[in-house]
């Protein structure tokens, strides 16, 4: 769940046509999918897109990331091309995921947001140059200083970790969030968030298609991010 966000921008919503077919994907589950023997090779990773969904599907709207991941995964299953998308749904983004995104062409993080209005979709390009100092970790305040947590990382922290310990992050990375209304116990999402799912799925799918196979050198996304700025799509 995102609790903070960047400044809100209001560009027009992206053109959303029919649901596209993605190239083949691995199945999404409450686990990290097993990698294939060659999935760590540089050539393989260069064309790879990774979708990392975060949330708890037992806490109502917090499960939005998982719902989107499941839908994108189903679309990918309909495709016939060789696997180019790896879908990972977890309750927290942990340091081990750094290796999953290292060297990938695209990483799309999907999560719920407590800061935006329910159903609003926000797309934020993420950039974490290797030369930058480590970003602050998510944490709490104690004795007027921030105290870091260890089990949960933000996307920019994960990118920084990938660059430091694996030598390279993904060429491009985006955070897609959907404004949530309720984080109570339950598997049923609130109506406003449920309505946002198809559009969010198309948006994520379009991101994957747009960058699928277009390998970029790591860091190039920092100079040429696309979308250029964070964007917010208000609910219908």
């Amino acid at each position: 769940m995102r609790t903070t966000n960047a400044e809100i921008f209001r560009p027009p919503a992206p053109a959303l046509g029919h649901l596209p077919k993605l190239s083949g994907a691995v199945r999404v589950a409450d686990r990290i999918v097993p990698e294939t023997a060659d999935s760590k090779s540089p050539a393989r990773r260069a064309g790879l897109s990774v979708l990392l969904a975060c949330g708890n599907p037992l806490r109502q709207d917090d499960g939005i990331g998982w719902r989107i991941a499941e839908a994108v995964d189903r679309m990918a299953e309909q495709g016939n091309a060789e696997p180019m998308l790896r879908v990972i749904a977890v309750q927290q983004w942990t340091p081990e995921l750094a290796e999953e995104i290292s060297g990938a062409n695209l990483a799309v993080f999907v999560d719920a947001s407590a800061a935006d209005e329910p159903g609003a979709i926000r797309v934020t390009p993420i950039c974490s140059p290797a030369s930058a100092p480590p970003p602050q970790m998510r944490g709490t305040q104690r004795f007027e200083v921030p105290i870091s947590e260890t089990h949960a990382l933000d996307p920019d922290a994960l990118l920084a970790l990938a660059e430091r310990i694996c030598g390279r992050g993904p060429a491009r990375a985006f955070l897609v969030t959907v404004g949530a209304e309720s984080f109570q116990f339950g598997e049923e999402m609130s109506a406003s968030v449920r309505r946002a799912v198809p559009r969010a799925v198309r948006l994520v799918a379009n991101l994957v298609i747009a960058f699928c196979g277009k390998h970029q050198e790591p860091g190039s996304a920092c100079q040429h991010p696309s979308p250029e700025k964070p964007s917010l799509i208000h609910p219908d």
Binding site: P95, P133, P134, P135, Q136, M137, G139, R142, F143, V145, P146, I147, S148, T150, L153, A157, A160, L161, R164, I165
Partner: peptide, 15 residues
């Protein structure tokens, strides 16, 4: 500094 005692700063100092 407490804000540095975490895995990210460890990765920065001792990758």
């Amino acid at each position: 500094p407490p804000e540095q005692r975490n895995i990210l700063h460890l990765a920065h100092a001792h990758p």
